[in-house]
Design a binder for these strands. Structure first.
Ligand SMILES: [Mn+2]
Ligand SMILES: [Mn+2]
Ligand SMILES: [Mn+2]
Ligand SMILES: [Mn+2]
Lengths: 220, 220
DNA sequence: TAAAATTTTTAGACAAGTCTAAAAATTATT
DNA sequence: AATAATTTTTAGACTTGTCTAAAAATTTTA
């Protein structure tokens, strides 16, 4: 069966996928509504439609999970989104804070070979500009384990490998603070009261709030 | 006033623009319906909406013309379409018969600088893969004069500079016959009965029907 | 475990874009 | 100029995706 989904349907599948990855369990209607910036009643309607198409399984008042087929579509859409973000940054020289909304549109372009050709043109990148892993042609995706800067203890060092929040305001803050993917961060002190951290990056000492540190993926 | 039009609205403006360019006069409802592959009643509805937005002027039962603003949007959409076609052929190595439907989607991506950055990346091309002129950043477009192969007389030679029909079947036929943009064609004989031509191209003699010859733009 | 709070679903409405069928206006034909 | 043919518009309906308000189910709290 060949599917041609609307942009709305693809966006819902992506949302259900990403909530499911984070939580493991089946996904609540309200969580989807929150992520999609819409109302619970709209979610109920859409989930019903996706269920009719065999893309999710839904138990009334219980929750929603993707079927194998639904997950495959979600992952393909993510692949498309992240490859277009690479294109926008690497090829068209956009800044990493400018590309999300554009990729949000481009991910829905329908074509049999477009995304694979783009992948080839970009030399098969593994990560998008925000450090998120790019699924391969077969939908295989390597999740990097979720170690946040907030969990690093005073005295330890780590490397920035990704951002959890891709909002323009957060990314602009990072630019300003010289916090970029690949940079080393040394945690100097952690404030007991509000979890704020003094960190050393690019030979400068700065203070970052918990809000910041819990949105940065790092590795040892 | 900043406009954010739907894909349908942009497609209608493009259709009205291209019919207007060919005919000069104001555009009939049925002509639009034919080009948009829709019904006259749908056109009436949409024309009313575009008129309310100040993008077309419409006189009941008489016809429709683009306003300055409407024409500007149509030309920008055309620019986007043709630049994406260049990208698909030049950068992603699609064949010229594969790109129209994809560009038909990509032309609608909303972003302030995307198309201009794409233009720069492609080194400001003047023509798309089908020989159609690409409007510049300011919407200035050079129409090449419409000389068709069908109007070339026996004994004369010309260069292929564009195709009027961009359908995949026509373009595949041209590929097969080695008829490509830039190639020279010598018209050897023209059949009085059905206007079919014997032509010499790439040192081969072939016969092309009037259907073919009236869809090829040429220059001396 | 019964009442209260929360979550989810249902019911009914709306805008965009499309369609069919019928009415109205225009153009062509006699 | 009257009739016929064609074009265009109107009227009403349908689909998709959304919303608000109210009802129903579930979970929390006391
Ligand atoms: Mn999207
Ligand atoms: Mn990203
Ligand atoms: Mn289009
Ligand atoms: Mn073209």
């Amino acid at each position: 069966m060949k599917f041609d989904l609307s942009q709305a349907e693809e966006n819902y599948l992506k949302a259900i996928y990403s909530i499911g990855i984070d939580t493991g369990k089946s996904v609540n209607t309200n969580q989807i509504a929150l992520m999609m910036k819409t109302k619970a009643s709209s979610v109920t309607d859409m989930v019903k439609k996706l269920s009719d198409k065999g893309l999710v399984e839904h138990k009334k008042y219980k929750g929603t999970i993707l079927t194998r087929k639904g997950e495959s579509i979600a992952v393909n859409t993510l692949r498309s989104h992240r490859l277009w973000e690479c294109f926008l940054v690497d090829t068209l020289q956009f800044n990493w804070d400018e590309v999300h909304d554009i990729a949000e549109q481009m991910e829905h372009i329908k074509s049999d070979s477009l995304v694979d050709r783009l992948d080839q043109f970009l030399s098969f990148p593994s990560y998008d500009p925000h450090g998120d892993p790019i699924p391969d042609k077969n939908g295989v995706i390597k999740h990097h384990k979720n170690v946040m800067l907030s969990s690093v203890v005073a005295g330890d060092s780590c490397i920035v490998i990704g951002v959890k929040d891709s909002s323009s305001s957060f990314l602009k803050f990072l630019d300003n603070a010289s916090i970029r993917l690949g940079n080393e961060i040394k945690v100097v002190t952690v404030e007991d009261f509000d979890q704020s951290m003094q960190i050393e990056i690019e030979n400068k000492m700065i203070t970052v709030s918990y809000q910041i540190s819990k949105n940065l993926y790092v590795k040892k």
